[in-house]
Nucleic acid binder design. Structure first.
Length: 562
DNA sequence: TACACGATGAATACAACT
DNA sequence: AGTTGTATTCATCGTGTA
């Protein structure tokens, strides 16, 4: 069929014996190979790989010693001329430097320009739309590209592109970078990709390979006091092995295909699905993708109460015998209203001291389960209090209190948090590995579930770089940090989308790299409770998963070559 | 202005059944 | 193997009120 031997070998290596995937990969290579020579630097699948290799040897420093550049007046001029030398226009180079700052490594500037060019092009294709709408369309296009390509170097390049869309390239407001020749080339590329997409959409999908099955019971690789599950071989590819360890979390009951995609991005590691009802008195079905060892885990002590009665003893005296609940449902971000509890009270009181009619009982139980209501008085139900949620989730008392936080916001941040005991069980294996403490990169930190878990395990927190967009959450974590008298350093970043490789490099050079990357990406567009925008990884919040992926890939590749 | 409330179902898994 | 019924779910939005 005209493919070169090297290509076929590469494709088989990356896709195994799956003929369809191999063919797809070959077609993709072919697409790129046919690019005109002088444009290759822009969309060549090897380009991203090249860039990351270059990054490893710090080319800008190396080249700085070259005589040719010493005569140039400023560092900026030097960088610009270097980029021009590489085939970029001076305007592009200047815009990139202005946007990224001058001391950004050359490889990152190159990636920025490449992504900006492609982004600009797709932007032109979308025509007249509102800014927000455009950004969202770009994200969609990117997700589609990303989910079609399986070659890892393609993924790296497109990931950079994706970042560009997220960051909002049109704000550049720069000149039109593309020459007519380039524009034509991009049009051509776009058409090919769209054709490929349509072709793939028509193909009958091999759904069996795409479905990630949830274990029943949901005990992951094992939980305390439960029979061990039958374990299939747990395979962690070499490139995902070892330090820095990573730990990713999200809702287990995401739309179909989402976990398969997330697993594909995170080195094809099988997710570990665990229900926190095996750790505390409330359910919480979550999936975790991590490369931690799973032997010799240990529980957090003291073990928390496992039933409603033990966890909330004051409810015992009011709990009717016909409410058979032993554990609570998942703690969400919204609570039942006062009027609802009122209606329930009236309905139950109608029957006096007798048991309510079956119809009433059914209604009450249904509402109690739906809204996680507990019995706090005679015939009286109420939603959980924030401090009760904190306790159930494994946080210290009043963790989310103070700092001018509203009650509603307390519920929101608690509903988004880790169940500390569950996460700590998985992280417990780190204790013997890092007896002197660990350096943590905490993404989407929220109220600091990861930090609390590590602290309660007795693992000293040497350095914590926390990325969290909500100011209230950052305040909560900071005040916990101060209250628990932490000796290490806590550094906050605001927006993960703005976190550059350069900033990470700076952190890592002072900390000696990271030991653990931990976090759960936003689930807003994955969660079952979302009626309006449950649109999967394309959603405006949940698409930040790809940022999580970007950071992991970045940190790990930087640390591999330190 | 900030906060609390109430209306807004569908997607998914699974047990039980034909 | 297909069908039916049951249970659960890290939510968003506009609106009224203090």
């Amino acid at each position: 069929m005209g493919f070169s031997k090297e290509m076929v070998i590469k494709a088989v290596k990356e896709n195994g014996q799956n003929e369809g995937a191999v063919l797809d990969a070959l077609l993709t290579y072919k697409t790129f190979e046919e690019s005109p020579e002088d444009e290759q630097v822009l969309v060549d699948p090897c380009h991203a790989e090249l860039a990351s290799n270059v990054l490893d040897v710090y080319p800008d420093e190396e080249i700085c010693e070259n005589e040719e550049f010493k005569n140039l007046s400023t560092e900026k001029d030097r960088t610009v001329s270097l980029l021009v030398e590489m085939g970029y226009q001076a305007e592009e180079a200047l815009a990139a430097i202005d946007r990224c700052s001058l001391d950004t490594p050359i490889a990152e500037l190159v990636e920025f320009i490449s992504a900006a060019q492609f982004a600009y092009h797709t932007d032109a294709q979308l025509g007249e739309l509102s800014y927000d709408n455009k950004i969202h369309q770009h994200q969609k296009v990117c997700v589609l590209f990303l989910s079609e390509l399986t070659c890892s170097s393609d993924l790296r390049f497109l990931n950079q592109l994706y970042t560009m869309f997220l960051v909002g390239f049109p704000k550049l407001n720069g000149p039109v970078y593309m020459s007519k020749k380039k524009r034509k080339y991009y049009d051509n590329e776009m058409q090919k990709l769209q054709k490929q997409r349509k072709y793939l959409e028509k193909q009958p999908m091999d759904h069996d390979n795409e479905i990630v099955h949830l274990p029943n019971p949901m005990v992951g690789f094992g939980v305390p006091n439960q029979p061990s599950p039958v374990l299939f071989q747990r395979r962690i590819p070499d490139e995902a092995e070892g330090r820095p360890y990573f730990y990713f979390e999200n809702v287990a009951l995401a739309p179909k295909g989402v976990w398969h995609t997330m697993s594909r991005f995170l080195y094809y590691i099988d997710p570990e699905f665990v229900d926190s009802k095996f750790f505390c008195a409330a359910a919480r079905k979550r999936g975790y993708i991590h490369n931690l060892p799973i032997e010799n885990r240990s529980q957090l002590l003291p073990t928390p109460p496992s039933t409603i009665h033990e966890a909330l003893p004051h409810t015992k005296q009011y709990w009717p015998s016909w409410d058979k609940r032993m554990q609570l449902n998942c703690i969400l971000t919204c609570i039942g209203s006062a009027k609802l509890t009122d209606r329930i009270k009236k309905a139950v009181e109608k029957s006096g001291d007798d048991e309510p009619l079956p119809g009433v009982k059914k209604y009450v139980i249904q509402q109690c389960k739906k809204w996680n209501l507990i019995w706090v008085g005679k015939n009286k139900v109420a939603p959980l209090e924030p401090h009760e949620m904190e306790m159930l989730m494994g946080f210290p008392p009043n963790h989310t209190r103070g700092g001018g936080i509203s009650r509603t916001e307390q519920y929101t941040v608690l509903g988004n948090a880790f169940q500390v005991d569950t996460v700590a069980y998985h992280l417990s294996v780190l204790k013997s590995m890092f007896p002197d403490g660990i350096s943590v990169l905490s993404l989407f930190s929220g109220i600091g579930g990861a930090e609390v878990a590590l602290h309660r395990l007795g693992i000293p927190l040497r350095n914590v770089v926390s990325v969290e967009i909500s100011e209230t959450c950052r305040k909560i974590l900071k005040s916990w940090w101060d209250e628990t008298n932490q000796q290490g350093k806590l550094i906050h970043f605001h927006d993960i989308r703005m976190l550059t490789a350069h900033e990470l490099e700076k952190c890592m050079s002072t900390f000696g790299g990271f030991d653990l990357i931990i976090g759960g990406s936003p689930c807003n567009n994955l969660a079952g409770g979302n009626r309006s925008t449950r649109n999967g990884l394309e959603g405006s919040k949940s698409c930040l998963f790809f940022e999580y992926y970007r950071i992991i890939e970045l940190v790990r590749s930087m640390m591999r070559h330190r």
